[in-house]
Amino acid sequence: MDLDDDTWIEQGQKISNASELREYVAAIRAEVHHMQTGLARAAAGALNGRSWLDTPGDERASHGDVLHEQLDMTVTPAGMAAKDAVYRQSLAALLVALEAVDRATLTVWLADISAKDPNRPA
C-alpha cells in the first residue's frame, strides 16, 4: 500500500459531468465494500485465532455479524482488559464508518435516479 497514493484525489479532480460522478461514486462504493469485508475477516481471524481461510465455511461470519457479535459493545464483558475493549471498539468504529459511507453512496445513487424520474421504482 502506498500512503502517498492520491488516486482518489486525482480522479475527483477530473470529474466534469454527472455521468463521471456516478462512476466515481460507484467506484467508492465498491472500494468501501472491499474494505468492510477485508477488515471484518481480519478482525474475526484475530479474535478467533484462526484465519478466515482456515475457518470452515459454515462458521464464517459476515462483516455485520463480526461487528455486532464480536466487536460492538455497550457494556464491556466482565474481565476484559481495557486495552482489549478499546481495540474492539476501535475496529467497530471503523466498520460503522465504512457502513456509513456505503449508505451515503447508496443515497447518492437513489438521488440520481429520483432526479431523473421521481416515480421510478427504486
Rank of each mutant, 00 (worst) to 15 (best):
D2Y: 13
L3Q: 02
L3T: 05
D4G: 02
D4Q: 08
D5E: 09
D6Y: 04
D6K: 04
D6S: 03
T7N: 02
T7Y: 04
E10T: 03
Q11D: 05
Q13C: 01
S16P: 00
S19W: 02
S19I: 10
S19Q: 11
L21E: 01
L21H: 02
R22W: 00
Y24I: 00
A26K: 11
E31G: 02
V32I: 11
H33Y: 03
H33L: 06
H34S: 09
M35V: 03
M35H: 12
Q36H: 07
Q36D: 00
G38L: 08
G38F: 00
L39D: 00
A40Q: 05
R41G: 01
A43W: 01
A44G: 13
G45M: 08
A46S: 09
L47Y: 01
N48M: 14
R50S: 07
R50W: 02
S51G: 09
L53W: 03
L53S: 14
L53E: 15
G57P: 00
D58W: 08
D58S: 05
R60K: 13
R60I: 03
L67C: 06
E69Q: 14
L71I: 03
L71K: 04
L71F: 10
T74D: 08
V75A: 12
T76R: 15
A78L: 15
G79K: 07
M80C: 12
A81Y: 05
K83T: 12
A85T: 06
Y87L: 10
Y87F: 12
Y87C: 04
R88T: 09
R88W: 12
S90R: 08
A92N: 09
L94G: 01
V96R: 15
A97V: 01
E99P: 00
R103C: 10
R103M: 13
T107G: 11
V108M: 13
W109N: 09
L110K: 12
A111K: 11
I113S: 12
A115R: 15
K116N: 08
R120Y: 06
